[in-house]
Design a protein around this nucleic acid. Structure first.
Lengths: 259, 259
DNA sequence: GAGTAACACGAGGTAATACCAGTTGGCCGC
DNA sequence: GCGGCCAACTGGTATTACCTCGTGTTACTC
């Protein structure tokens, strides 16, 4: 009997897919939930009647796309949190096809603007209340950039949830996860944070009044500013790293992170 | 209150990442191009001073995200064609988090509409000429659904290229690839195709006249219709497959995503 | 001589096994 | 009772052997 759900020319071997199918059904049947630990590899391999190597191939596949996470010595766990592809997906794909930073930013803006518009249409009172809370916390954390960032992220995630479309949310997570890798080193000054908080408040208001157009616009505006700030960081990093390798204002044509 | 903002300890083992890095640099340095064949596993393993198992873990990782494709007996190849994540990524992720078909369609509409808008801003004369050609071929293939589909896909891909943002293009490819899996069985009748061709022509005209708003609107309109048609197919498939198992319960768990 | 069938070699796929390296928690000694 | 140590888990890596599939070559047939 072949359940072969997904043949396709992808070339993934059958056993690997069998593992994927099994894990999928485990979750679909509610036997394991996000955050749960899977049975140990040796045991699972015995149960599936395959070797541990093959099982590991399947587990590798799933963790490559962010569905599973293995912790050495502890076990293999189902990812919790918002759905998202593995952060390195885009990064590697980008290295292949030469994605440029501005394209990354633009993709994020496009996605989040549309998400904000959807959220303005569909947000429930609970969502709006959550957003209000996060905005408040942002104002309260103006002096603590690390704390601010937490609520910043939560704000955007809440909007994604309010949009009612987890797929768009997942794509957003995938992109931002890649973007945040460069960040978190340099912290913004209080000045910038205040400005940022105000923009978040505007976005919140647009969503609260269920005005998609306004939500889209303010979100675009917000992210454009944020992007510019981050681009500066990137350039500085570049200068710091290459230390005179390339003169200023070098062609941004090869800006991918490259050790 | 926990400081949840994911640590994103991806958990990918070092050796796996070493392989990823190596392949990445191979491509970055232009030593291999899309479509090329990589050295055999045994040889690569020797060169990287790691075991074949570990190498295979890395290769599995890369092919899981659609960067490499292994063909049994032939070798391992770098993916060619437009950049895209592996089609099964979204499929598996969707199975886990319960993505619904309409969300898939909506995500596609959002993406392609934005892409069309960008394309209207940036399309070069060459792009526009290509689009014109594809539209013409669509009209010429009204009687041959299979041929029509080819040019349909090409039309959308050309727009993605014209948008100047390969990242958005990759996301689009990822979603549509998943969507097309259900399709291609049932072919549309000539009636529908004619209508479809006309809409493509309208999109083309909006892009040619560099009118982003119009391009976005017509693209949205087009995809909305296409989605409706495909939803019907899906429903029929459902009925066919489950044969009266669950008649109308197409949405078991409305969009929940966070426990 | 042209076409085709069989073969051999090289590639990835799977398996079995041993051992390495973090995690965890219970047990023992102070 | 408390703290540190050790043992039994866990996943991670390495080694080896063998299977299956592609592909190019060779040899046989017509």
């Amino acid at each position: 009997m072949k359940k072969a759900v997904d043949d396709e020319a992808t070339g993934h071997s059958q056993l690997t897919m069998q593992v994927v199918e099994h894990v999928r059904s485990l979750i679909a049947k509610g036997e394991v939930h996000p955050g749960d630990r899977l049975p140990p590899e040796r045991e699972l391999a015995r149960k599936l009647k395959i070797s541990r190597s093959s099982l590991r191939a399947g587990i590798g596949f799933l963790s490559a796309m962010g569905v599973l996470k293995s912790r050495h010595g502890a076990g293999t766990f189902v990812s919790s949190g918002p759905p998202a592809l593995d952060s390195s997906s885009l990064s590697v794909l980008g290295a292949l096809h030469g994605f440029l930073p501005w394209q990354m930013f633009e993709a994020r803006i496009v996605l989040e603007a549309s998400i904000a518009a959807l959220a303005a249409e569909r947000a429930t009172d609970e969502h709006i209340a959550e957003l209000a809370e996060e905005v408040a916390e942002m104002y309260a954390a103006l002096a603590d950039p690390r704390e601010y960032l937490i609520h910043d992220v939560r704000f955007h995630r809440t909007i994604a949830r309010a949009s009612g479309n987890p797929i768009l949310g997942a794509l957003m997570e995938t992109i931002t996860a890649d973007l945040y890798r460069h960040r978190s080193k340099t912290v913004q000054n209080t000045q910038d944070l205040k400005e940022s908080a105000e923009m978040h408040r505007e976005i919140y208001r647009a969503i609260r009044s269920h005005n998609p157009t306004q939500a889209r616009l303010t979100m675009e505006q917000h992210l454009k500013l944020a992007s510019d700030a981050q681009k500066l960081e990137l350039d500085q990093e570049d200068v710091t790293h290459s230390a005179g390798a390339v003169p200023e204002k070098s062609a941004p044509t090869s800006h991918q992170q490259n050790p």
